[in-house]
Amino acid sequence: MKKKLGIMLAVGLCLILFVVSPLFPFVRSLTVMSVYSGMHRQESLMRQEGIRLKIPGGLSTRETDWYPFVMTFNASEPFQRFIQDPGVKLTILYNFPAFSMKKGCSRLFDPASPYYNSFYGAYLVQREDGSAFGFTDGKLDLDQTALVPCFDFWELVLDDFGLPDADKQFDWQITKLTENVSYLGYDGWSRVEADLTVNGAAHRASGFVQSYLQYGTPAYPVSEEFQPVPMKGLVYGRYFDEWNTSIFFYVLATTEELTQKCDEEILSRSVLE
């Protein structure tokens, strides 16, 4: 009896130590997001249109740079409200910076990290009337294209962290546009390089919010919350008639070198068919 009680106490102590350790938020994130992302993938535009789309995650590189796998989120309803168009559907594939095992949260929150505030992935957008979202007369519509990452940052990321609407900033300046690019085995992509100024994710946690389940609770020093930061953006966009869907691959990072590296090592190795 005493032996069993000792084992139970030891197991209980180990569980307590695990829960309060920086490792616990990472394990919790992996568990929650694998299930949640899987549920969203079942209802995604990929499933509805028979699109096979796979983007490598952080496990595909040798560095501790990105989260292990790319997640899926269906954002049709909030995006419809954001652009005031009930006839549009949006599926987002995304990934964010890797966790710090010392801090117990993603480096998304670390202003000193080169991966601060960074994301990569893909947007799939479909209109019920069959028109190509993000394109006008077959050409990339830069203003319309910018609506998706703006919505993503403001409504899906920073809003849950507590960024006031009055302080939201998203400035997008195109530095280079290249048409008819070959990418992932398809011709006809538009490639956009851009300079951005967007709110940073660094903030002080004043309570627990749902987003902390995936990113962890921020634990880095903060001098000023949501301070706008200069970023570099890279986008590949193309409309696919066979799926009635516009697809945009994207990288948002702190430096041009990092956007290029993510493209070469991860995005360009995606499967789309």
Rank of each mutant, 00 (worst) to 15 (best):
K2I: 00
K3S: 08
L5D: 15
A10T: 11
L13T: 12
L13H: 04
L13A: 12
L15Y: 12
L15M: 15
S29F: 13
L30M: 14
G38T: 08
G38A: 10
M39L: 14
M39D: 02
Q42C: 04
M46K: 09
R47M: 01
R47D: 10
R52T: 06
L59E: 15
T61N: 01
T61M: 14
E63W: 02
E63N: 12
E63C: 07
M71E: 15
M71Y: 15
T72R: 01
A75C: 09
P78K: 15
F79D: 03
I83W: 10
I83K: 03
Q84N: 13
P86Y: 04
I92Q: 07
I92C: 00
N95I: 05
F96R: 00
F99T: 02
M101C: 10
K102N: 12
G104F: 00
R107L: 11
F109R: 01
P111E: 09
P111S: 12
A112Q: 13
S113C: 05
Y116N: 05
S118M: 09
F119N: 05
Y120F: 11
A122G: 08
Y123E: 01
G130K: 07
G130T: 07
L140D: 03
A146S: 10
L147I: 09
L147V: 10
C150S: 13
F153S: 06
D165E: 15
D167F: 01
Q169N: 04
W172R: 08
G188N: 08
R191K: 04
L196Y: 08
T197W: 04
T197G: 00
G200A: 04
G200P: 06
S206Y: 01
F208Q: 11
F208H: 12
Q210Y: 01
Q210M: 15
Y212A: 00
L213M: 11
Y215R: 00
Y220F: 15
P221H: 11
E224R: 13
E225C: 07
F226G: 09
Q227V: 09
G233I: 05
G233M: 10
L234R: 03
V235M: 09
G237H: 03
Y239I: 04
Y239M: 05
Y239L: 03
F240Q: 01
E242S: 13
W243A: 14
F248T: 04
V251M: 11
E256M: 04
Q260H: 14
D263N: 12
I266R: 00
L272P: 04
E273M: 10
